[in-house]
Design a protein around this nucleic acid. Structure first.
Lengths: 199, 199
DNA sequence: ACCTGAACACCGTTCAAGT
DNA sequence: ACCTGAACACCGTTCAAGT
């Protein structure tokens, strides 16, 4: 079932991966799928785990921090190719083996790059969440259109209505997605490492 | 239209805020709503902006950093009351006046708490994204169930399969949501302030 | 010019009934 | 015991036709 779902997603996107479509693909009725999966959310979770299997292990070159950023970037890139999956899975707490392996290795790299254990334990969550949220947000069908709409909404107001936004003007939209993503991970890792959780 | 949508959402949740339901509420057909809104995404954006209007301005006590954290916490709390809205809006680039006012004030507080201008411009995005993603994730109907499933998935593997997860065991799930959320914002603000964007 | 009934093209999930 | 046809209860969006 998951194999068919993967193929349909790759060929036509997650939107087409519906119980009914999959059932049609398997020449049966939609009810039959409920023998294999509990519901659509679980199906999406299974698809995510399958997708994470393709994540090639980091090349283990450079320092731990560099490897960590590479792993997070690779995760973001995989998710960016399937934004609606990222969106769907954001509300899940994935528990597939590949997901757990990924979190385990991110946690290891975070520790290796100097984060105290409690910081790393809490921090790995926000790094993964950021990767997923970024993919969900930037992958929307109409993302560029929305960004333009937002920019014009700012421009369309009388000057002075949003003083800090106005002042930041040049910086707000600058940089490529990759630059901003790398910087976000660097900043988060720095903050995670330096900020102690409450005792 | 937005007013009716707000009422239905408050009474029965965003799930019930559908074009058809709203049309029924207004004694007309669903087609009529398309005179007022372009599509469902835009409707959700309008609902978000309406919701943000209720965000009381920060009490302006304490340092800029404390005010910033208070504002981010207030945002997270509002969104947590409507997790499916957070989920839906995560894929949008909101451009309503109340949203822009909020971002403007967050940006101001970030600057006032010591972040250089380029850092603040890029950083405000990741703070807002974190608030939305947290609400979307933790607000799911079955979130606790999923968390338990994840925990048991880790417990159910042979020891040693996920060494770092095992070692972190105690810390991984510790703390309340509020504690973790506050820490995440503190860590992110620290990282944003200390990490320079690429020139 | 403005609005909308009805249709198009779908959904997830359940459950009684078949094999 | 295992599977599934058919039904239930919905969706968003479009467009031809009315007022």
């Amino acid at each position: 079932v998951v194999a068919v779902a993967m193929r349909v997603m790759r060929e036509e996107g997650l939107e087409k991966v519906t119980m009914r479509r999959l059932a049609g693909e398997l020449d049966t009725g939609p009810a039959s799928l409920y023998v294999y999966v509990e519901n659509t959310a679980e199906l999406h979770g299974a698809i995510l785990d399958e997708l994470l299997a393709e994540l090639t292990p980091p090349p283990a070159e450079g320092g731990a921090r560099e490897q960590l950023i590479a792993a997070l970037t690779a995760l973001t890139e995989v998710l960016l190719r399937h934004p609606s999956l990222a969106r769907s899975v954001l509300t899940l707490r994935p528990s597939g083996p590949h997901y757990l392996r990924l979190v385990d290795s991110l946690l290891g790299l975070l520790l290796a790059s100097g984060a105290p254990a409690p910081n790393a334990a809490w921090g790995v969550d926000i790094l993964v969440q950021h990767a997923m949220a970024t993919a969900a947000e930037h992958g929307g069908d109409a993302y560029d259109g929305e960004a333009a709409r937002q920019e014009s909404a700012i421009a369309g107001t009388e000057p002075g209505a949003y003083p800090n936004l106005d002042a930041a003007g040049e910086h707000l939209m600058s940089g490529t997605g990759a630059q901003r993503s790398r910087w976000a991970f660097e900043a988060m890792i720095a903050g995670i490492t330096a900020t102690a959780p409450p005792a």
